[in-house]
Design a protein around this nucleic acid. Sequence first.
DNA 1: CCTTAACTTCACAATTTTCTGAAAGAAGCG
DNA 2: CGCTTCTTTCAGAAAATTGTGAAGTTAAGG
Lengths: 166, 166
Amino acid sequence: MTETAGGRDAEAVSKFVESFAAQLVEAGMQRMPARIFAALLSSDSGTLTSAELGEQLQVSPAAVSGGVRYLAQQHMVAREREPGSRRERYRVHSDQWYEALTNREAVIKRWEGALREGVSSLGAESPAGRRLSETLAFFEFVDAEVAAMMERWRAHREERFGSAPL
Amino acid sequence: MTETAGGRDAEAVSKFVESFAAQLVEAGMQRMPARIFAALLSSDSGTLTSAELGEQLQVSPAAVSGGVRYLAQQHMVAREREPGSRRERYRVHSDQWYEALTNREAVIKRWEGALREGVSSLGAESPAGRRLSETLAFFEFVDAEVAAMMERWRAHREERFGSAPL
DNA sequence: CCTTAACTTCACAATTTTCTGAAAGAAGCG
DNA sequence: CGCTTCTTTCAGAAAATTGTGAAGTTAAGG
């Protein structure tokens, strides 16, 4: 085993990072954000500095900066400033996916907007308009259901893991 | 108004196609598949031939072919062969999103696989291992809930639109 | 204030992706 | 069968994306 000072198997970590990131990439995420996110997810503290990320992933500070900016916009990482230092820490919570999925609703809202315009410009009574209406109804349904689902997840998690999301 | 032979406002259709496709692209979908899908969604019959798609979107047959292949893999369009013709029709159903979302579960299953490997290689009792476990639990929860949600959607749609998906 | 550590921005090079035209491959129909 | 019509595949040009080094910006700490 390749052990680092911290006692973790650096190679195992890296293997997980790359394979999980690859899955995210295949699902449409950009490579660098995916790798950064995977690295954070598999860190013991759930936080890494820019320098640590750069070293682990073998990329420049600029690449880290760009990747983190993207992730922060998507609400997939939080930025923290260590008081009394110019170093920044990036953090994931275990329930970060909850956050991210909740955020997806914003995307769906825009889809809904485009669909509503389509319905009115193509005519609600035309065949195409009806198809768009039904599509819109599906999204509205999903919106509402996802909100309820997330509420159930919160309850489920507290029961199983305790209330504090790490 | 710019009316085509069929009486539809070609410009309005095109405007919807491009704006809806743009939203899909922003959410991570490739451009050509997004445009093709939007065009099908806003067609009166819900089907278009390769030639019709090429003309409407101003792209080559090769581009249509590539885009359709992708969409078919994702279960977002169905291919139909008109009997007694070499022409192929591509079709969307109004509940195509139901299909597509159901299909997303396959992607999540792979994420779950990568996470399980991570948990076992990093150690289930390490802090990182615990975070990965909790992430895994979230996905397992979502899997189950989405399946139930889709069942409810089927019931909801029948009630509201009648049972036959167009 | 001035220095210095850390992050960000920017222009550019390299890679990757995307679309096209051309050729090849199916499949109906005479 | 062979002609014709449609679709797919493929090599390559064009465009977009990605990551880098270097310069620029911000803020801590003497």
